[in-house]
């Protein structure tokens, strides 16, 4: 869509029927504002970092942001789908852990790497499908169902093993240690490519397919979407399948990153994913948001951690406090923004 073509309603002015009047054309439609705010924040944080710390403003630091958070990007993409329909998926962190466990245990049992990867992805999608079906057909709140999913996945981890399982498979190790050199000497990992492909595919699905538009429609008004004859059931269940798939994929990326399967991997990662989505400008009430925003949200979270590692003397708990504070700022901003519109 061409941004320049979209007129926005003059702020504060009353809406006018049969709008002939002042059709002011502002360059940026309001719905992109949150994402732009996130982008500005990211750039500003990076600018501050570059001024404060030597070596901060290098391509590799940016690349590392992607490398260290590839799994979180994938996770946030899946979460964006769910939140766009007005739902929530608390199970993602546990599904990541379960995926690392299944991968590690599978490989240990002698499965081939492709089979393992397929099995993990199928498991994640199936898990999401199950939750989606329960949410949609039994009309139980997503919060509760995915909370049960959180417990279930974590519990299954322990059933597989209480101990950490190392991954020794060659394919996994080669993906894990593989690097792709970019012009300028910056290196990234295959995981980064996968994560960016996921973002691109997600953006395509959300904006250029009927399924994607139905996701937005359901988030805007589910009953309207149903009365319009849209496939709401497919969208509502589908987003959990996507989120489950993304969690499994993120779990694979995470196992490349850690080269182990462990029940205590990714504890609380669902909160990071939700925080990234919210900071990226997606409304938790559904219907409004962009997947690019979630990507930016993850990068902002990653920058905070980079800050803390560059600072050196700061303790790790400042990360949590900083994320909480950012979350607060964005939520309050969203609130004021939406509040003014309403």
């Amino acid at each position: 869509m061409k941004a320049a073509q979209l007129p926005t309603r003059p702020e504060g002015a009353a809406p006018v029927a049969t709008s002939r009047p002042a059709r002011r054309r502002t360059p940026v439609p309001t719905r992109f504002l949150p994402v732009i705010a996130t982008f500005v924040l990211f750039v500003a944080m990076f600018g501050v970092g570059s001024v404060r710390y030597e070596g901060f403003a290098s391509g590799q630091v940016v690349a590392n942001l992607f490398i260290d958070n590839a799994f979180l990007i994938v996770l946030a993409v899946g979460m964006t789908f769910v939140i766009l329909t007005g739902g929530i998926d608390l199970s993602v962190g546990s599904v990541v852990a379960l995926s690392t466990m299944v991968a590690a245990a599978g490989l240990q049992a002698g499965w081939s790497a492709p089979l393992t990867i397929l099995a993990v992805l199928a498991m994640g999608s199936g898990f999401g499908l199950l939750m989606g079906l329960v949410i949609h057909y039994f009309e139980i709140q997503p919060f509760i169902v995915t909370l049960a999913g959180l417990f279930l996945a974590r519990g299954l981890c322990y059933v597989i093993s209480v101990e950490s399982i190392p991954i020794k498979d060659d394919t996994f190790r080669s993906i894990a240690t593989g690097v792709i050199e970019l012009p300028g000497g910056t290196v990234i990992t295959p995981s980064v490519v996968i994560a960016l492909v996921v973002v691109a595919v997600a953006a395509y699905v959300l904006h250029l397919t009927r399924f994607g538009r139905t996701v937005y429609a359901v988030g805007g008004s589910e009953s309207s979407a149903r009365l319009m004859g849209l496939a709401t059931a497919r969208a509502k269940v589908g987003v959990y399948v996507i989120s489950g798939f993304c969690s499994a994929l993120a779990g694979l990326l995470f196992s490349f990153y850690m080269l182990s399967g462990y029940s205590l991997h990714a504890v609380g990662m669902e909160l990071d994913a939700i925080a990234a989505v919210v900071i990226g400008g997606t409304l938790l009430s559904g219907g409004v948001g962009l997947v690019v925003g979630s990507l930016l949200g993850v990068l902002v979270l990653g920058t905070i951690q980079t800050f803390i590692s560059f600072e050196g003397t700061l303790s790790s708990w400042w990360t949590k406090i900083a994320i909480g504070t950012l979350l607060l700022i964005f939520i309050v901003m969203q609130r004021l923004f939406v509040g003014r519109k309403a």
Partner: peptide
């Protein structure tokens, strides 16, 4: 009560579910 999705554009509300497609996308 208007049964449309107020978060989407006018065009989308008119064509939701029957969007014209080209090259595999809307």
């Amino acid at each position: 009560e208007v049964n449309l999705c107020s978060n989407l554009s006018v065009a989308e509300n008119i064509l939701l579910g029957r969007e014209p497609r080209r090259l595999g996308g809307i």
